[in-house]
Protein backbone atom coordinates (compact mmCIF):
# COMPACT_ATOMS: atom_id res chain seq x y z
CA UNK A 1 0.00 0.00 0.00
CA UNK A 2 2.83 2.35 0.83
CA UNK A 3 3.62 4.68 -2.01
CA UNK A 4 0.58 3.70 -4.07
CA UNK A 5 -1.84 6.48 -4.64
CA UNK A 6 -4.23 4.54 -6.80
CA UNK A 7 -6.74 2.65 -4.69
CA UNK A 8 -8.25 -0.16 -6.71
CA UNK A 9 -11.72 -1.61 -6.29
CA UNK A 10 -10.19 -4.79 -4.86
CA UNK A 11 -8.30 -2.79 -2.27
CA UNK A 12 -11.45 -1.04 -1.27
CA UNK A 13 -13.38 -4.27 -0.96
CA UNK A 14 -10.62 -5.90 1.06
CA UNK A 15 -10.49 -2.91 3.34
CA UNK A 16 -14.26 -2.95 3.82
CA UNK A 17 -14.21 -6.64 4.63
CA UNK A 18 -11.40 -6.19 7.13
CA UNK A 19 -13.23 -3.33 8.74
CA UNK A 20 -16.39 -5.41 9.13
CA UNK A 21 -14.44 -8.31 10.61
CA UNK A 22 -12.75 -6.01 13.12
CA UNK A 23 -16.09 -4.55 14.15
CA UNK A 24 -17.59 -8.03 14.56
CA UNK A 25 -14.66 -9.16 16.72
CA UNK A 26 -15.02 -6.05 18.83
CA UNK A 27 -18.71 -6.67 19.43
CA UNK A 28 -18.13 -10.35 20.27
CA UNK A 29 -15.42 -9.51 22.81
CA UNK A 30 -17.50 -6.67 24.26
CA UNK A 31 -20.52 -8.92 24.76
CA UNK A 32 -18.42 -11.75 26.21
CA UNK A 33 -16.67 -9.45 28.71
CA UNK A 34 -19.97 -7.89 29.71
CA UNK A 35 -21.46 -11.34 30.29
CA UNK A 36 -18.45 -12.51 32.27
CA UNK A 37 -18.35 -9.36 34.38
CA UNK A 38 -22.06 -9.03 35.02
CA UNK A 39 -22.91 -12.75 35.10
CA UNK A 40 -22.94 -13.15 38.88
CA UNK A 41 -25.08 -10.02 39.22
CA UNK A 42 -27.58 -11.19 36.61
CA UNK A 43 -27.85 -14.47 38.48
CA UNK A 44 -28.22 -12.53 41.73
CA UNK A 45 -30.98 -10.36 40.28
CA UNK A 46 -32.95 -13.40 39.07
CA UNK A 47 -32.52 -15.09 42.44
CA UNK A 48 -33.75 -12.08 44.38
CA UNK A 49 -37.29 -12.40 42.99
CA UNK A 50 -37.66 -16.17 43.27
CA UNK A 51 -39.97 -17.99 45.64
CA UNK A 52 -38.37 -20.50 47.98
CA UNK A 53 -40.18 -23.42 46.37
CA UNK A 54 -38.84 -22.36 42.98
CA UNK A 55 -35.30 -21.58 44.10
CA UNK A 56 -34.62 -24.64 46.22
CA UNK A 57 -35.48 -27.30 43.66
CA UNK A 58 -32.48 -28.82 42.04
CA UNK A 59 -34.25 -29.83 38.84
CA UNK A 60 -35.66 -26.36 38.09
CA UNK A 61 -34.02 -24.30 35.39
CA UNK A 62 -32.26 -21.70 37.56
CA UNK A 63 -32.30 -19.00 34.87
CA UNK A 64 -36.08 -18.68 34.47
CA UNK A 65 -39.00 -18.12 36.81
CA UNK A 66 -40.70 -21.47 37.14
CA UNK A 67 -43.17 -19.89 39.55
CA UNK A 68 -44.41 -16.31 39.75
CA UNK A 69 -41.74 -13.84 40.85
CA UNK A 70 -42.17 -12.39 44.33
CA UNK A 71 -41.16 -9.22 46.15
CA UNK A 72 -41.29 -10.94 49.56
CA UNK A 73 -37.52 -11.13 49.97
CA UNK A 74 -37.04 -7.50 49.09
CA UNK A 75 -39.66 -6.64 51.69
CA UNK A 76 -37.91 -8.86 54.23
CA UNK A 77 -34.65 -7.06 53.50
CA UNK A 78 -36.10 -3.67 54.36
CA UNK A 79 -38.63 -4.61 57.04
CA UNK A 80 -36.97 -7.41 59.03
CA UNK A 81 -33.25 -6.76 58.66
CA UNK A 82 -31.15 -3.70 59.44
CA UNK A 83 -30.29 -3.22 55.75
CA UNK A 84 -31.65 0.35 55.74
CA UNK A 85 -29.54 1.15 58.83
CA UNK A 86 -26.44 -0.31 57.15
CA UNK A 87 -27.11 1.76 54.05
CA UNK A 88 -27.63 4.91 56.11
CA UNK A 89 -24.42 4.26 58.09
CA UNK A 90 -22.44 3.70 54.90
CA UNK A 91 -23.85 6.91 53.48
CA UNK A 92 -23.06 9.24 56.37
CA UNK A 93 -19.70 7.68 57.11
CA UNK A 94 -18.85 8.00 53.41
CA UNK A 95 -19.89 11.64 53.22
CA UNK A 96 -17.98 12.63 56.35
CA UNK A 97 -14.90 10.74 55.20
CA UNK A 98 -15.08 12.44 51.79
CA UNK A 99 -15.29 15.81 53.53
CA UNK A 100 -12.27 15.09 55.76
CA UNK A 101 -10.43 13.74 52.73
CA UNK A 102 -10.96 16.92 50.73
CA UNK A 103 -9.95 19.13 53.65
CA UNK A 104 -6.68 17.20 54.05
CA UNK A 105 -5.92 16.25 50.44
CA UNK A 106 -6.73 19.42 48.49
CA UNK A 107 -4.25 21.71 50.28
CA UNK A 108 -1.66 18.93 50.30
CA UNK A 109 -2.01 18.34 46.57
CA UNK A 110 -1.93 22.08 45.89
CA UNK A 111 1.22 22.39 47.96
CA UNK A 112 2.92 19.58 46.07
CA UNK A 113 1.78 20.67 42.62
CA UNK A 114 2.16 24.42 42.84
CA UNK A 115 4.26 25.75 45.69
CA UNK A 116 7.42 24.48 44.14
CA UNK A 117 9.36 23.11 47.07
CA UNK A 118 12.39 20.97 46.21
CA UNK A 119 11.01 18.05 48.24
CA UNK A 120 7.61 18.04 46.51
CA UNK A 121 8.42 15.20 44.13
CA UNK A 122 9.71 12.84 46.78
CA UNK A 123 6.86 13.72 49.15
CA UNK A 124 4.32 12.96 46.43
CA UNK A 125 5.80 9.53 45.90
CA UNK A 126 5.92 8.90 49.66
CA UNK A 127 2.25 9.76 50.00
CA UNK A 128 1.38 7.51 47.09
CA UNK A 129 3.20 4.62 48.77
CA UNK A 130 1.05 5.04 51.85
CA UNK A 131 -1.88 4.07 49.62
CA UNK A 132 -0.17 0.72 49.06
CA UNK A 133 0.12 -0.04 52.79
CA UNK A 134 -2.82 -2.40 53.19
CA UNK A 135 -5.40 -2.46 55.98
CA UNK A 136 -4.38 -6.08 56.58
CA UNK A 137 -1.07 -4.82 57.93
CA UNK A 138 -2.57 -2.17 60.20
CA UNK A 139 -5.93 -3.44 61.43
CA UNK A 140 -4.53 -5.07 64.60
CA UNK A 141 -2.76 -2.01 65.94
CA UNK A 142 -5.51 0.31 64.68
CA UNK A 143 -8.13 -1.69 66.54
CA UNK A 144 -6.10 -1.21 69.75
CA UNK A 145 -5.91 2.49 68.90
CA UNK A 146 -9.67 2.61 68.37
CA UNK A 147 -10.16 1.01 71.79
CA UNK A 148 -7.81 3.58 73.33
CA UNK A 149 -9.89 6.36 71.77
CA UNK A 150 -13.05 4.81 73.22
CA UNK A 151 -14.51 4.36 69.74
CA UNK A 152 -14.79 0.57 69.64
CA UNK A 153 -18.17 -0.70 68.40
CA UNK A 154 -19.00 2.77 67.08
CA UNK A 155 -19.40 3.78 63.45
CA UNK A 156 -17.39 6.91 64.31
CA UNK A 157 -14.24 4.78 64.48
CA UNK A 158 -14.55 4.39 60.70
CA UNK A 159 -14.88 8.15 60.22
CA UNK A 160 -11.54 8.56 62.00
CA UNK A 161 -9.71 5.71 60.27
CA UNK A 162 -11.02 5.64 56.67
CA UNK A 163 -9.22 8.80 55.55
CA UNK A 164 -5.99 6.77 55.88
CA UNK A 165 -7.21 4.94 52.78
CA UNK A 166 -8.73 7.85 50.87
CA UNK A 167 -6.27 10.70 51.52
CA UNK A 168 -3.18 9.26 49.78
CA UNK A 169 -5.01 8.23 46.61
CA UNK A 170 -6.95 11.51 46.52
CA UNK A 171 -3.73 13.52 46.75
CA UNK A 172 -2.41 11.48 43.85
CA UNK A 173 -5.51 12.07 41.71
CA UNK A 174 -5.72 15.78 42.58
CA UNK A 175 -2.06 16.21 41.65
CA UNK A 176 -2.99 14.90 38.23
CA UNK A 177 -5.96 17.22 37.83
CA UNK A 178 -3.98 20.25 39.06
CA UNK A 179 -1.39 19.65 36.37
CA UNK A 180 -4.06 20.11 33.71
CA UNK A 181 -4.73 23.68 34.91
CA UNK A 182 -2.18 26.14 33.49
CA UNK A 183 -0.17 27.96 36.13
CA UNK A 184 -0.53 31.21 34.17
CA UNK A 185 -4.15 31.51 35.23
CA UNK A 186 -3.49 31.82 38.94
CA UNK A 187 -0.33 33.85 38.38
CA UNK A 188 -2.43 36.34 36.46
CA UNK A 189 -4.91 36.36 39.34
CA UNK A 190 -2.08 37.13 41.77
CA UNK A 191 -0.83 39.96 39.57
CA UNK A 192 -4.39 41.25 39.69
CA UNK A 193 -4.12 41.49 43.45
CA UNK A 194 -5.28 38.15 44.80
CA UNK A 195 -3.14 36.55 47.47
CA UNK A 196 -1.81 33.03 46.84
CA UNK A 197 -4.63 31.54 48.91
CA UNK A 198 -7.18 33.84 47.28
CA UNK A 199 -6.06 32.77 43.83
CA UNK A 200 -6.28 29.12 44.85
CA UNK A 201 -9.79 29.39 46.30
CA UNK A 202 -11.33 31.74 43.73
CA UNK A 203 -9.55 30.68 40.55
CA UNK A 204 -8.06 27.19 40.86
CA UNK A 205 -10.80 25.43 42.83
CA UNK A 206 -13.61 26.34 40.40
CA UNK A 207 -11.49 25.07 37.50
CA UNK A 208 -10.69 21.95 39.46
CA UNK A 209 -14.34 21.17 40.14
CA UNK A 210 -14.71 18.30 37.63
CA UNK A 211 -11.63 16.66 39.12
CA UNK A 212 -12.91 17.22 42.64
CA UNK A 213 -16.18 15.51 41.77
CA UNK A 214 -14.23 12.53 40.43
CA UNK A 215 -12.20 12.38 43.64
CA UNK A 216 -15.37 12.55 45.73
CA UNK A 217 -16.88 9.61 43.85
CA UNK A 218 -13.69 7.61 44.08
CA UNK A 219 -13.18 8.26 47.80
CA UNK A 220 -16.79 7.43 48.57
CA UNK A 221 -16.52 4.13 46.72
CA UNK A 222 -13.37 3.21 48.60
CA UNK A 223 -15.06 3.75 51.95
CA UNK A 224 -18.18 1.87 50.89
CA UNK A 225 -16.08 -1.16 49.85
CA UNK A 226 -13.84 -1.31 52.89
CA UNK A 227 -14.30 -4.52 54.84
CA UNK A 228 -11.50 -5.38 57.27
CA UNK A 229 -11.61 -2.30 59.52
CA UNK A 230 -15.38 -2.37 59.66
CA UNK A 231 -15.27 -6.05 60.59
CA UNK A 232 -12.51 -5.66 63.18
CA UNK A 233 -13.80 -2.51 64.92
CA UNK A 234 -17.57 -2.96 65.05
CA UNK A 235 -19.84 -5.75 66.24
CA UNK A 236 -23.26 -4.30 67.22
CA UNK A 237 -25.80 -4.59 64.38
CA UNK A 238 -26.99 -1.00 64.57
CA UNK A 239 -23.46 0.36 64.02
CA UNK A 240 -22.51 -1.81 61.04
CA UNK A 241 -22.06 -0.61 57.48
CA UNK A 242 -23.25 -2.32 54.31
CA UNK A 243 -20.11 -4.23 53.45
CA UNK A 244 -19.96 -6.00 56.84
CA UNK A 245 -23.64 -5.86 57.80
CA UNK A 246 -24.98 -7.75 54.81
CA UNK A 247 -22.66 -10.78 54.94
CA UNK A 248 -22.79 -11.10 58.74
CA UNK A 249 -26.43 -10.31 59.52
CA UNK A 250 -28.17 -12.00 56.62
CA UNK A 251 -26.52 -15.29 57.37
CA UNK A 252 -27.80 -16.84 60.59
CA UNK A 253 -25.61 -19.78 61.44
CA UNK A 254 -26.03 -22.10 58.50
CA UNK A 255 -29.16 -20.37 57.23
CA UNK A 256 -28.51 -18.07 54.30
CA UNK A 257 -31.28 -15.67 53.30
CA UNK A 258 -30.17 -16.11 49.72
CA UNK A 259 -32.76 -14.02 47.90
CA UNK A 260 -32.41 -11.09 50.31
CA UNK A 261 -28.60 -11.34 50.20
CA UNK A 262 -28.60 -11.22 46.41
CA UNK A 263 -31.10 -8.37 46.39
CA UNK A 264 -28.82 -6.42 48.74
CA UNK A 265 -25.80 -7.04 46.52
CA UNK A 266 -27.59 -5.83 43.39
CA UNK A 267 -29.15 -2.82 45.13
CA UNK A 268 -25.72 -1.64 46.25
CA UNK A 269 -23.82 -2.58 43.09
CA UNK A 270 -25.96 -0.86 40.46
CA UNK A 271 -26.00 2.77 41.69
CA UNK A 272 -22.24 2.82 42.39
CA UNK A 273 -21.41 1.37 38.99
CA UNK A 274 -23.73 3.85 37.23
CA UNK A 275 -21.99 6.81 38.88
CA UNK A 276 -18.59 5.33 38.08
CA UNK A 277 -19.49 4.79 34.44
CA UNK A 278 -20.44 8.46 34.18
CA UNK A 279 -17.06 9.52 35.54
CA UNK A 280 -14.86 6.87 33.92
CA UNK A 281 -13.26 9.18 31.34
CA UNK A 282 -12.48 11.71 34.04
CA UNK A 283 -10.74 9.13 36.26
CA UNK A 284 -8.66 7.98 33.36
CA UNK A 285 -7.60 11.59 32.76
CA UNK A 286 -6.66 11.91 36.44
CA UNK A 287 -4.61 8.71 36.43
CA UNK A 288 -2.60 9.65 33.33
CA UNK A 289 -1.91 13.18 34.47
CA UNK A 290 -0.94 12.09 37.97
CA UNK A 291 1.63 9.69 36.60
CA UNK A 292 3.24 12.09 34.15
CA UNK A 293 5.34 14.68 35.89
CA UNK A 294 4.63 18.25 34.79
Amino acid sequence: MAGTLVVTEADRRRYAWRHRAARATLYVIAVLSALFAAGPFVWAAITAFKQDSDLYRRRNNPFVFNETPTLDHLRLLFARTAFATFAWNTLWVGLLVVLITLVLALPAAYSLARLDRPWAGRMGIAIFFVYLVPPTLLFLSLSRLVVALGLQDSTWSLVVIYPTITVPVSVWLLLGFLKTIPKDIEEQAMVDGYSRVGAMVRVVVPLLLPGLVAVVVFAFTLTASEFIYALAFISPTSEKVISTGVPTELVRGDVFFWQSLQAAAVLVAVPIAVVFTLFLDRFVAGFTQGAVKG
Binding site: A38, A44, E226, L261, A273, V274
Partner: peptide, 21 residues
Protein backbone atom coordinates in the same frame (compact mmCIF):
# COMPACT_ATOMS: atom_id res chain seq x y z
CA UNK B 1 -21.39 -0.15 33.06
CA UNK B 2 -21.58 -3.96 33.12
CA UNK B 3 -17.83 -4.36 32.92
CA UNK B 4 -17.18 -1.96 35.80
CA UNK B 5 -19.65 -3.72 38.14
CA UNK B 6 -17.18 -6.23 39.61
CA UNK B 7 -14.68 -3.53 40.52
CA UNK B 8 -17.03 -0.87 41.91
CA UNK B 9 -19.17 -3.17 44.04
CA UNK B 10 -17.98 -3.61 47.63
CA UNK B 11 -15.88 -6.79 47.59
CA UNK B 12 -17.83 -8.44 50.37
CA UNK B 13 -21.10 -8.09 48.44
CA UNK B 14 -19.76 -9.14 45.05
CA UNK B 15 -18.17 -12.17 46.69
CA UNK B 16 -21.60 -13.07 48.07
CA UNK B 17 -22.97 -13.29 44.54
CA UNK B 18 -20.16 -15.74 43.80
CA UNK B 19 -20.84 -17.68 46.98
CA UNK B 20 -24.35 -18.26 45.71
CA UNK B 21 -23.20 -19.04 42.18
Amino acid sequence: FLVLLPWTTPVALSTITWLWM
